[in-house]
Design a protein around this nucleic acid. Structure first.
Lengths: 232, 232
DNA sequence: CGTCCGGCTGAGCGCACCCTGAAGACCTGG
DNA sequence: CCAGGTCTTCAGGGTGCGCTCAGCCGGACG
């Protein structure tokens, strides 16, 4: 059971990541895949044009400091030849003042060092703005709309706090899949190696609100983590 | 049932910016994107014809001083082959330039140096005139007419200051969507990384006027930002 | 049936977030 | 140069939120 949730495989947004630091590229890539995107990673912009026509990304995550052509040059290429959104990775140091002006042509930017969860959130937000991604997710009679921050259960609005909403959004993106507490801690809080009780407390609060007007959706899988799933 | 307001994301107006100064082009581009337009930037008019058929802009922001063919020549090309609106960027205070541009059919012009917010306002105004964008927005019993700068609540006029109006217009354009204070600061003030209290103060002032004669429309979403929305 | 361990949750505390009144800076027209 | 209005800064205060902690619950297993 629970084979491929098919989070929309055919319609999954494509994201191209251009980042020369392998560790960062890999981390960004897996975070984005985890969030349901189709991801391609390149260490430089050498064959950007080819990549744009072949992979046809909906969005490009672009480092500014790159070997060969730098991020700003690549940004222009993207703008000229494709309708893809662009999220830039910029460093905050002495030189950045000069670059600050440059990264403003992007749809959004993230300042290094950044929390993966924030990058994912910004990528999702840009894709939504561009209309490449539906902003609402449905699980059973539960409806989560990212834009308006509205959550409905059986058409009745549910009031959530910011943290509860972030948690729910993550679980919704992973719906049908069991996610560990550690995984949740890094995705939602950006914490590595932290007290899992933090997750338990917020799951508890979330459940109280979600399941006030319906059966259980957020299930505990003992020893493994949690799943958001509607029983049939 | 209130799913996604879908502010018209899929039908977002397309704006082509032709500007050879990188910094200006980038700044203009990001300001327009912030305002919800789909933007393409080009440093010259070399392949204007291709761009018009490929990108099919609803409006072109056109610098006059350009390498190769100048703005006026390009303006004629646009008029001949497309129905796009045109907003020209005129260098100095050249009154003659201004008249020339209008004579030859630019829809509006902005004199350099200009405030980004003003350019955005003029672009929006032209698009509205061309019928590409609705000029009045309604949220519950609140009516915001961007053209005439008239705001009505339950048919009673409300007097707003310039800043309050800009803020309200932005929130109205984003209605139903939660917008962060940072986002508001860049969209309404053009500030990056500024004190959020500035927004809070103006929201407070705006509320006092808007909600004098009716229930709350401008809601705080703690930890996320503000939304303009009528409750059901 | 008893023990152990993972998970749940109520209570409480400190803080971050937000609101608002007031005063200073600025601008504009008379 | 003053007067009125607007914008911004500042500081105080209220409060909801996030997190920690500790005790309890209950499933798993012998």
């Amino acid at each position: 059971m629970v084979v491929a949730q098919n989070v929309g495989v055919s319609t999954a947004a494509r994201v191209l990541v251009i980042e020369d630091a392998e560790a960062i590229g890999a981390a960004v890539g897996s975070a984005l895949r985890e969030a349901g995107f189709q991801v391609q990673i390149r260490p430089d912009g050498r064959d950007l044009e080819g990549e744009l026509t072949r992979f046809r990304p909906d969005l490009v995550v672009l480092d500014i400091m790159l070997p060969g052509r730098d991020g700003f040059t690549l940004l222009e290429v993207i703008r000229r030849t494709s309708g893809a959104g662009v999220v830039m990775l910029t460093a905050r140091d002495g030189v950045s003042d000069r670059l600050r002006g440059l990264d403003r042509g992007a749809d959004d930017y993230v300042i290094k060092p950044f929390v993966l969860a924030e990058l994912v959130a910004r990528v999702s937000a840009v894709l939504r703005r561009l209309g490449r991604t539906p902003s609402t997710v449905q699980i059973g009679d539960l409806l989560v709309d990212a834009d308006s921050a509205v959550v409905l259960r059986a058409d009745a609005p549910i009031e959530l706090t910011a943290t509860e909403l972030r948690l729910l959004r993550y679980l919704a993106a992973q719906r049908g899949r069991v996610v560990g507490k550690t995984q949740i801690l890094t995705a939602v809080w950006g914490y590595e190696d932290y007290d899992p009780n933090l997750v338990e407390v917020h799951v508890s609060a979330l459940r109280r609100k979600l399941e006030e007007h319906g059966p259980r959706l957020l299930h505990t899988v003992r020893g493994l983590g949690y799943v958001l799933r509607a029983e049939e």
